[in-house]
């Protein structure tokens, strides 16, 4: 082992010297990992975009009807927040996502676990499930509108369906991809069916399930925007439609920023939860 390790280190050293001898590209590469540049670089592009946007409005390259100045958008964002328009509508939207996500998430989990654990359930349900999941949420909207109208039910069903599909698929695949080896270990220790599920299936499927939940939340948020754009009189998506109809692009862009910020928050939150929950995946090297 020690000999092998030595040769690898030696090889590394040779390579490192080689890169060091290379002209400036190598050095710049390593320096870009340093603190100051590491923090500055990501800010350059947004600043450039902002600069271009500002100049476009300062020198009237583009009509403010089509692209309002950054300051105007910022002002609108502040105004809409102060007047409560954003918070109220965001609250309504958040509630819709929450209900739809909970209903769809739980249903998807139950369905996915059932299909993953039982070949019989899978044989009966999977083809139909697959067919239903193939039609995008957008396809179901007109049909559902005729059954349940354009009220709250429609929105929650659409969001729930958008959540259900990725979570159920993740559960099925997570379970089916568990190595047969693990089940043999369970049988060596004489695990009951329940113990197999509790100590092998669930923990082994967690990474896949987490992916499913992340995707589910992502799709839920996407579906919310779709239904609110299409049929709504309140909610963050509606705010956007309203701005568009009045040709107030500052409102549209301000709402886009809010939608992006919420999406970012959700994503980061889940990433954090994942890294906490799946600490065992972090390896030593």
């Amino acid at each position: 082992m020690s000999i092998a390790a030595d040769t690898t280190t030696l090889a590394r050293q040779v390579l490192v010297t080689k890169t060091a001898q290379r002209p400036w590209t190598g050095r710049l590469l390593r320096r870009s990992g340093s603190w100051s540049l590491g923090l500055t670089l990501p800010l350059l592009l947004p600043l450039a975009i902002l600069g271009a946007w500002q100049s476009a409005s300062t020198w009237h390259w583009i009509s403010p009807q089509i692209l309002p100045a950054p300051a105007v958008v910022w002002g609108t964002l502040v105004d809409l927040t102060a007047s409560g328009d954003i918070t109220t509508n965001l609250g309504i939207s958040a509630l819709r996502v929450l209900y739809g996500f909970l209903i769809g998430g739980i249903a998807g989990l139950v369905l996915g676990l059932a299909m993953g654990l039982s070949p019989t359930v899978r044989a009966y349900l999977y083809p139909t499930f697959n067919a239903i999941s193939l039609v995008p949420a957008l396809g179901w909207i007109p049909l559902l509108m005729m059954f349940v109208g354009i009220g709250e039910t429609l929105k929650i069903i659409i969001i729930a369906k958008a959540t259900l599909v990725p979570i159920a698929i993740a559960a099925v695949q997570g379970i089916r991809n568990i190595p047969e080896n693990y089940f043999e270990v369970g049988s060596v220790f004489r695990f009951s069916r329940w113990q197999v599920v509790r100590y092998i299936v669930l923990p082994a499927a967690v990474p896949s399930l987490f992916n499913g939940v992340r995707q589910g939340l992502n799709h839920a948020w996407l579906a919310l925007v779709v239904v609110e754009l299409l049929a709504s009189s309140e909610g963050i998506g509606y705010l956007m439609v309203w701005g568009r109809q009045l040709f107030q692009l500052d409102v549209v862009i301000a709402t886009m920023i809010v939608i992006g910020a919420v999406g970012l928050l959700l994503d980061q939150g889940l990433q954090f939860a994942e890294s906490r929950l799946l600490r065992w995946r972090r390896s030593a090297y």
Partner: peptide
Amino acid sequence: RGIVFQEHRLFPWLSVTDNIGLALQN
């Protein structure tokens, strides 16, 4: 009867003690 498999087959989500403890479930 106990077995040590060719590959260790430890469960990656359990610590050393929990992996050993798994054998004592029953």
